[in-house]
Design a protein around this nucleic acid. Sequence first.
DNA 1: GTGAAAGCGCTAACAT
DNA 2: ATGTTAGCGCTTTCAC
Lengths: 355, 355
Amino acid sequence: MADITIRDIAKAAGVSTATVSYVINGTKPVAPERQKRVLDVITKTGYLPNTVAQSLRTKKTNTIGILVEDILSFSVPPIINGISEYIENTDYRILLNDLRMLNSLYNRYDQIVHQGEKINQELMFLVYGAKVDAVIYVGMFDRDISGVIPNINKPVIIAYSTSEDEHTCFVTYENENISAEMMRYLINAGHEKIAVISGLEHTPPAQQRLRGVQRAFEEAGLLLDNHMVKNGDWERDSGYHCMKSLLGSAHKPTAVFAMNDLMAIGAMDAIKEAGLSVPGDISVVGFDNRDASEFVSPKLTTAEIDLKSIGYNAAQIAVEKLKSKNNGKNKIIIPSKMVLRETVKKQSCEWREQS
Amino acid sequence: MADITIRDIAKAAGVSTATVSYVINGTKPVAPERQKRVLDVITKTGYLPNTVAQSLRTKKTNTIGILVEDILSFSVPPIINGISEYIENTDYRILLNDLRMLNSLYNRYDQIVHQGEKINQELMFLVYGAKVDAVIYVGMFDRDISGVIPNINKPVIIAYSTSEDEHTCFVTYENENISAEMMRYLINAGHEKIAVISGLEHTPPAQQRLRGVQRAFEEAGLLLDNHMVKNGDWERDSGYHCMKSLLGSAHKPTAVFAMNDLMAIGAMDAIKEAGLSVPGDISVVGFDNRDASEFVSPKLTTAEIDLKSIGYNAAQIAVEKLKSKNNGKNKIIIPSKMVLRETVKKQSCEWREQS
DNA sequence: GTGAAAGCGCTAACAT
DNA sequence: ATGTTAGCGCTTTCAC
């Protein structure tokens, strides 16, 4: 099954190797009768063309390299899952390369530039070593990575990050609209004194999410008090400390939007510690829909990023580019959606009037 | 950088292609002076041998296929991380193939046999299509998968599952000792009325963990009452229901060992719902050290499986087999360890005497 | 519509 | 120690 060559098939079918190749690849018309003979021999013997020989000849490996920043980051496996699902119905294979950046980077992802050397090296490894036909770069933080990926002469698609570069493809998720939507949800529930616990403030997701918040406030004719936005660093602890500071301030919020689930959970820690109830006294919403959001109590209302679609679309673009039928849709933003759980309570009008 | 061939190097260095090959691969001694000349040209030009051509010639692709049951299962990414870490220091590459079984299987993993067709197909794809040199099969449940992997003529290493088959390699983790250790920990904390919430009872991890529990009980001269062990199904809900039933019984436990974190969290739900406190009234320990165990409150004391080591060792065995220097250690059980957090309380003697 | 044959870039047997 | 060269299994040009 493994050591049969095209020569064996040709001999058995009484044709030339060229003819066998023609029927396998459909590259040239072959007389139906001979075609059938070849096909019969192939199925009878279980012959599979040697892909290595094919690659050497055609200079295509039918392999897509996926370079991930860290497979341990919660967002990465679902993206790979999406890639895998798309790829399964093509004749491509996946070569995986994990940069394992999590330890060296922690949450100082502004330090990513210093990883350039390593990224470059692994990319060369994939492209010139493994000779992949295209690469999908899977980020672990949503950010602009223009310039970190050197120019190679093959399609590169960025997943879960972006690039300012005109010619770079990426597929990422939507931040601003979904943040506005969550805000509206809070406002419609009767909340007016809403605080936000931001992620590192100079990062794209923090900025975009804040813009969404502001938009919703404006639309509702509300004012976002500067004292109501605290800067965290995406980690649980920072959510806790921001919330403590909010709790100690003059105007306590009745709701808080933490820009990720980890900080939301930290905020919940602080609220409970203060003897207050979520959502009885304070409603909270997070972002990411991480597993943890189902395990805290009450269960966290949050926003979900469609990670699987990010991967699926990235793979699709890669394959389309390889088949030169990419329609030019090269910068895709996948909509995010709310997932309603237990941490938001309607703020009764009575309460508001009393206070 | 990409289109340079061994011929170009040979010409530039004034030697034959054979000599270049000898210095690249160290296959034959080469005069130091010529060696240096070749090396210089190689670094100067950035030449990288065409791996496809090498593979065609040597019949080795230097690629290890990893066939995972589902990358979305919590245990899989850390295993891949371990594989990746080992592989990075070798000249092998990783071809990833995701069976994506999670949806079709849910927790009915006894149904895995019905997936045989698909497993077989993807394995053939890896072995005869992609021509990987070896494959690591990464399970998503700890179980015996003898027979599900067809015999191929290349090394196969199973990770996170086992096989009765004499000649099959696997690396998995330890259940019985760690369970006994957790039990001893509970017993040393003064607990005697300890309940266990088992996973599906006919599964290997449930059986092994129960054996550990029994051993610790015997060693302590305690008796494990049958009424104190309830059978769950590994899911959170079942932990909740088992705990409710325990709470409604004649002899309430002061501590409970749930065989995984999900069921432990379900049990905590039930305890809190009954107005009792963890660990004030009832201590609980879980198993797996999933992310969730840090997000519930109080934080869950549990057992950690060294998933990364499982991957690392599996990769090591694969590479050793390929280099024919495998020492025969082909069935490895990685020790597990306790992670102490907040859900266990010392049971005071006074309390015991009063009750 | 078909086949002979060159050659993808490399390794290794063999000759020197 | 070094070079010549056949050939790994396939695709594809070119001639028929």
